[in-house]
């Protein structure tokens, strides 16, 4: 008979009843700085899920950040944010958390499939919704980019990867510390992705980073989504205001930015763009195109009638 040592006995009592063994990892579907995301099978419920597993079991700081990421996500209950179902530690000590498996396409792919400017702008507005909700919960994403947005099979927009999110107003929050998951600079570590990061975030002064840093990233995302289309100056101005180098010059919040896009789509003047008299005329004409055409047609008819009678 096999001899089970005291150490093995204790270990088996622990690992054989660890919830982590409930999930069978099927394939890698994403990799981030902190962890790897797998498509996995939940043996208990017989469904596929996404399981994010921390890369290492030997870094307590990283593990704390990872657990915090799960907690941040768990408190963000919004249709545009992937829900967390479970969290724990695998038998080898690596932390994990379980999310809904999102089936769909990346934002860039979906945006390219939309041919018109209004369609792409409406898609962009739906990215703003979960981000604005997170901000209302004092959470800043800090790594918004097209790769972190998915569009589900039914058109639902999901903002993913909250791994470097910051919780505002909590000085010693684990998620607020710089760590190895970001982009290294000569002076330390910067969290985020170059090209999408606000200047204050790129400078590495994390204390200055608030919800307006996300707005900057959204401006960059908006520009990228509109590539290949003729972009009206008003829309350019909206993106430019969101990406103002000084946070105070940006919109007060993401909802205001989305509202400005709403105004553009409704043919109203946008806050970000002071238009000239001619531009106002063109915009109004464009907004009331049908009515103007009808009036012009009526006037033309009257003119023609007058001309015929005069002959």
């Amino acid at each position: 008979m096999t001899r089970i040592s005291d150490a093995a006995l204790t270990h088996l009592q622990s690992v054989a009843f660890t919830d982590g063994d409930r999930y069978s990892l099927l394939e890698t579907i994403g990799e981030g700085g902190m962890g790897v995301v797998y498509r996995a099978l939940d043996a208990e419920l017989g469904r596929e899920v996404a399981v994010k597993v921390l890369r290492t079991a030997t870094d307590p700081g990283l593990a704390a950040r990872f657990r915090q990421e799960a907690r941040v996500l768990a408190r963000l209950e919004h249709p545009g944010i992937v829900p967390v179902h479970d969290a724990g530690v695998l038998s080898d000590g690596r932390a994990f958390y379980v999310m809904t498996l999102v089936r769909g396409q990346p934002l860039a792919t979906r945006a390219r499939a939309l041919a018109t400017l209004p369609e792409r702008l409406r898609l962009f507005q739906r990215i703003c919704e979960p981000v604005a909700f997170a901000h209302s919960q004092q959470v800043v994403h800090r790594d918004l980019k097209p790769a972190n947005v998915m569009v589900g099979l039914f058109g639902e927009v999901l903002v993913m990867d909250w791994g470097v999110a910051k919780v505002l107003g909590v000085a010693d929050h684990p998620s607020n510390a710089s760590d190895g998951s970001g982009v290294h600079t000569g002076h330390g570590t910067v969290l985020g992705t170059p090209g999408y990061m606000a200047p204050e975030q790129a400078a590495g002064t994390q204390a200055d980073v608030d919800h307006r840093a996300d707005q900057y990233s959204l401006g960059s995302v908006l520009n990228e989504m509109l590539e290949g289309l003729a972009i009206p100056p008003a829309v350019r101005a909206i993106a430019a205001r969101a990406m103002a180098p000084v946070p105070e010059l940006r919109y007060p919040d993401v909802t205001e930015m989305a509202s400005d896009i709403d105004r553009f789509l409704d043919g109203e003047p946008v806050e970000a763009y002071p238009e000239s008299a001619l531009e106002r005329l063109v915009r109004i004409a464009s907004r009331h195109r049908t009515a103007i055409i009808l009036v012009l047609a009526y006037l033309l008819m009257r003119l023609l009638l007058l001309l015929f009678r005069g002959l």
Binding site: V15, A16, T18, G20, D21, R22, Y23, S24, L25, A43, L90, S91, D92
Partner: peptide, 10 residues
Amino acid sequence: VTNHLSAMRR
């Protein structure tokens, strides 16, 4: 390895 160990523990 992860999956085999999980299955064995189950």
